[in-house]
Design a binder for these strands. Structure first.
Lengths: 345, 345
DNA sequence: TTGTAAGCGTTATCAA
DNA sequence: TTGATAACGCTTACAA
């Protein structure tokens, strides 16, 4: 009857579930039940509750809900970096998919540092998240312990490796390296070098190199790895190109650990008047935004960034019972990378 | 004496502040005070608490803390999209700066839709965030009401406009348009066209066009706007180039609403054998990753994305009392864009 | 400097 | 189908 007059000493000042209940003339637990659509609320009360919610412009307090249920609708994601060309699409699709089911994403960057990752995981745990996502399979002991003890779904993204326990959603870096090597061998190249990057902590490039090396050895060719000393990727790419094409032994094809390095080499080759791919074929990894725009356009391999984010989100929602499990089973979490044959190789 | 045996009926199973207090032999409020370093805890008790925290591997429950203080250490950020070339660096620097002060960032994408923005803001409010960040100054009435009623610091990013009340951190799109026009006029170009993009909802391009048009009118030149019908930006750029250089009236310089459009035009010009900038100068906006790599490299204007994120975070921390206000005052939130004079104009 | 009591706004549990 | 009561784990207010 009387208008709701909260007049709290503390509190946010916003309408609470009790205000709604009072206005609708029902118990607050009924409002709670109705709003999360768990059934068992009559249509009549439902309508009264709807009206009260609208009148008070009620927004449920998710913090209180999370505390009461010890299961907040939050998912933490630790990713090496947000602004690089690589992970943004994963974050985007991950966040969009979870948002659609009422979950929010907390984000933190590790910058390829296992210690920063551990800090982020520790902080996230304080929000009692419903699930956690990390990148790759290399973590500190502390992170492993935190993840194991959290009792929530944990997904490792990007790097798919056999024989690991946690849910993994990603692709095989070794297979990517093998793909590059097979492609170049099939095109007739034989003096194929591999250029690592200089980002400390990006261990996936080593996996790719190993995949490349294995294929070469299978065909009786000795692998050839070059590690630039320049730190800036464009400079490192140029340095690698010079080192691998000016010596006595000349590469006829070069696989770079990523498209930044390859772009550096491509630009250097233009300046030096070198014909690509005739004198030396160049190949990258990542399919960055500029790669199709270079002249010659860069042959590269596209990692399934968007697909990883979406599938990781789906796996989490399934583990939380918010989504039906997929029909077919098997290695569904191992995604393929697409080789984009363009002009440079 | 006896080891802590929680044995709770509900709860997360993790150690609580009470477990720490019991183990350290102090009251739980003392633990709370000590952990947030508000002083008033003796060194001796502090040491005992530290030991207990370490022994139990205690992680404070931020959900409970947020509920009790009705002031969670969370900041919500609504941004048009994460994976585009534009906003990623803002998200990165924003998140990093806040993380450093113990705040976590909740992220949502609006895809330039004011309705989606409102939904995101409504959901964020449920987490009783410490502050909220939105992009631009165009919101629904509902969003305005939610933001005004939230009673927390709100920052509008990217678009700085005179005479708005909320904290704004950004640059002037009108000034960007004016910058482009002045640069081209100073280089001697006179038949300068402006090409809009076709992304519905990106109203900032219109502001840039207005700035360009104002400068041209000042010099007695009639502005010339072209709006492509193609949706894909590269196609739209090509279409604009053709329309503006093939007719009877030929542009000698074209300003594009963004680098994607400009890149489409640049590639089309190469294919058509047109000399850039001699026959027609091309200019973009955004300084995307590929822009310095194009041939000719793209003259463009770099928006201060990283700076916006960091400054927005600083303004929020200052509003929350976590950081000292800056010494100097004035229009400190209006950032400059850098014109990168490269080869295409 | 430390402690006690009372919330914060929701949901789990149990009873009706 | 609905409701009363007691958590959830922390912090504010107040007292000592």
């Amino acid at each position: 009857m009387s208008p709701p007059t909260p007049r709290k000493r503390r509190g946010s000042g916003r309408a609470t579930i009790h205000d709604v209940a009072r206005l609708a003339g029902v118990g607050s637990i009924t409002v709670s039940r109705y709003l999360k659509k768990n059934g068992y609320v009559s249509a009549e009360l439902g309508a009264r509750i709807d009206a009260a919610v609208a009148q008070l412009n009620y927004v449920p307090n998710l913090v209180a809900g999370g505390l009461a249920s010890s299961r907040g609708k939050i998912v933490g994601m630790v990713i090496p970096n947000i602004s690089g060309p690589i992970f943004a699409s994963t974050i985007q699709s991950f966040s969009d998919t979870l948002n659609r089911h009422g979950y929010q994403v907390l984000l933190a960057s590790s910058y390829f540092s296992a210690e920063q990752e551990e800090n982020a995981v520790r902080t996230f745990l304080g929000w009692s998240p419903a699930a956690l996502v990390v990148t790759g399979r290399f973590h500190t002991k502390g992170t492993e312990a935190l993840l194991a003890g959290a009792g929530i779904p944990v997904v490792e993204t990007w790097d798919y490796h056999p024989r690991r326990k946690p849910i993994q959603v990603g692709y095989s870096n070794a297979e990517v390296g093998a793909q590059s090597a097979r492609y170049l061998l099939d095109k007739g190249y034989r003096r194929i070098a591999y250029v690592l990057n200089s980002v400390a902590g990006d261990l996936s490039a080593l996996d790719r190199r190993d995949g490349y090396a294995a294929v070469l050895r299978e065909r009786g060719i000795k692998p050839w790895t070059y590690t630039p000393t320049e730190l800036a990727p464009f400079d490192a790419g140029r340095q690698a190109l010079e080192a691998l094409t000016r010596g006595r032994r000349k590469a006829d094809a070069i696989v770079f650990a990523n498209d930044n390095l390859a772009a550096g080499a491509l630009l250097a080759s233009q300046r030096a008047g070198m014909r690509v791919p005739q004198q030396c074929a160049l190949m990258g990894f990542g399919d960055y935004a500029f790669s199709p725009l270079l002249l010659p356009s860069l042959t590269t391999i596209r990692p399934p960034g968007r697909e990883i984010g979406e599938l990781a989100a789906r796996r989490i929602l399934q583990a939380l019972g918010e989504l039906e499990p997929d029909q077919r089973n098997g290695r569904l979490n191992l995604l393929d990378c697409e080789l984009l044959a363009r002009e440079s190789a």
